[in-house]
Design a protein around this nucleic acid. Sequence first.
DNA 1: ACAATATATCAACATATGTTGATTTAATGA
DNA 2: TCATTAAATCAACATATGTTGATATATTGT
Lengths: 107, 107
Amino acid sequence: MDVFLKTVSALNDETRILILRFLDEYGDSCVCDLQTSLDMIQSRLSRHLKILKEAGFLRVERRGTWAYYAIRSPLDRFRSEALEEIRHLDITLPPLQKTSQTGACKL
Amino acid sequence: MDVFLKTVSALNDETRILILRFLDEYGDSCVCDLQTSLDMIQSRLSRHLKILKEAGFLRVERRGTWAYYAIRSPLDRFRSEALEEIRHLDITLPPLQKTSQTGACKL
DNA sequence: ACAATATATCAACATATGTTGATTTAATGA
DNA sequence: TCATTAAATCAACATATGTTGATATATTGT
């Protein structure tokens, strides 16, 4: 029960759906790039990334000062199906902005 | 987006998961019987049944004074998958009590 | 060690959602 | 029409969750 509810609860937010969709489309991203691309305050992003991670949707990998988040693979059946639904939602995805590469990522 | 979020939001509650599991196990039930079997206040049940119905999980059929709720069929892919998950959750389902038959269902 | 930057966490607040008891609406039968 | 019962809705309250700005932690380079 707990695991299922946590999974569902993680899906129950527009911000997190957008994040999932973004990572699904563009692949691994550091918080910094997500912040620029999605135009979100850093604490807000961290919160949602943590929830998605703890719900089993994402994994994190630390590279230097950066934390790269990515969709976990392989996802189990239910999470995969949820992601598939999200893929077909009518969302206007913002372009990927890799400010972390250029060093222009100062918070 | 709206439809998906509404679906997910409907799943995001223990009470509603229990109701879905119950109806999946025992089939159509009137609010009255659900109330007795699940030991829930009537207004609480009505609320959750409405949410589940509007989210596309349930259908209602009025028979006399009674409103019989049942899992909609066929469910679409995502809702089916969700129901399948719910089927495998570790929930101790209370026994079905058909008080509506005996007339002992006074609220 | 210190400065700079990336990320995580915290506290305060606002909004959303669930619960309950009361009231309203609907259907049936005398 | 009136009484009875089932179900829906409402109002008040409590709890959960999201947002924001501030602070803490972590990593790198000087």
